[in-house]
């Protein structure tokens, strides 16, 4: 019993060290910009860089659009597949896994071939078109996470019976999705949204190849040109990502509760 605990703790500590040591080292390094003493100079330098603010804002806006488009695509799709076409579910699962298998590089080269300025649908011919294309690419990248979050949300409520209960009360399909389904999976949707956000904020390949001023390319650019700022930026983006993850946990407590009580 005692030794069981010992080994469990040892594994836990080794595992934690694997994550914590590089993080702590990075943090320590980010504080050493001023010679001979610890300071937050590197952070001050990052925050005073106008490109930091503009690229971060750009990525936040693209992230928000990605989330909205993602919800509009995923929620009705998951709802109707679960309700009307359950036989499509394995195909859905497969398709939503593709973005994890196909490298972003392949995706973006495909985009450039398909939507390049000399093609029939030249999305990349204008700034707005490229932004739309980037958003669509991010929706695709986030699909595995958004799909699973929404699917989990719908698993916890009996969407079939709730839909029928609303239908017999006179509600149409749109009213059912807006007033019954969406509010009941809101927490799941938000957790998908935070994951999406975390992905978009750090994404480099697509934004860079489409030549958009996003946060990911900015991070990489700083990384190749400066010494201490990249460490500070790494810590900052780490905090943003973990903030988003933490929100998922907090939100979980507000999930709608159902109870199959027999009394």
């Amino acid at each position: 019993m005692k030794s069981d605990k010992f080994w469990a703790w040892l594994v836990f500590i080794l595992g934690s060290a694997y994550f914590v040591v590089p993080l702590a080292a990075t943090f320590e390094f980010s504080l050493r910009m001023r010679r001979g003493e610890y300071s937050f100079d590197a952070y001050a330098s990052v925050f005073s860089d106008p490109y930091f603010a503009s690229s971060f804002t750009y990525s936040v806006v693209v992230g928000l659009f990605t989330i909205i488009v993602g919800i509009f695509v995923v929620v009705p799709a998951v709802y109707f597949v679960r309700l009307r076409m359950p036989w499509l579910k394995p195909i859905m699962e497969f398709i939503t896994l593709l973005p994890l298998v196909i490298p972003a590089l392949v995706l973006v080269y495909g985009y450039i071939r398909l939507y390049g300025s000399s093609s029939f649908i030249p999305f990349t011919g204008s700034v707005l078109g490229t932004d739309i294309l980037l958003t669509c690419a991010y929706v695709t990248l986030a699909l595995p996470y958004m799909y699973r979050a929404v699917d989990n949300g719908m698993r916890t409520i009996d969407i079939g019976t709730l839909t029928e209960a609303a239908q017999i009360a006179g509600a149409n399909q749109l009213q059912i999705i807006a007033q019954i389904i969406l509010p009941n999976i809101l927490v799941a949707i938000l957790s998908g949204a935070f994951l999406t956000f975390a992905i978009v904020i750090g994404e480099f390949t697509i934004a860079s190849l489409l030549n958009r001023p996003a946060f990911g390319p900015y991070l990489v650019g700083i990384g190749t040109n400066r010494a201490y700022e990249p460490a500070a930026l790494a810590i900052i983006s780490f905090i943003i990502t973990w903030g988003a993850m933490g929100m998922i946990n907090v939100l979980g407590r507000f999930a709608p509760r159902t109870s199959a009580r027999t009394d």
Binding site: I157, D158, T161, L162, E164, A165, A166, I168, A169, I180, P183, N184, P256, R257, T258, A260
Partner: peptide, 12 residues
């Protein structure tokens, strides 16, 4: 009007 075995009240 219909009543279901599993109550099916809207949880939200």
């Amino acid at each position: 009007g219909m009543v279901f075995q599993a109550y099916a009240l809207f949880p939200n």
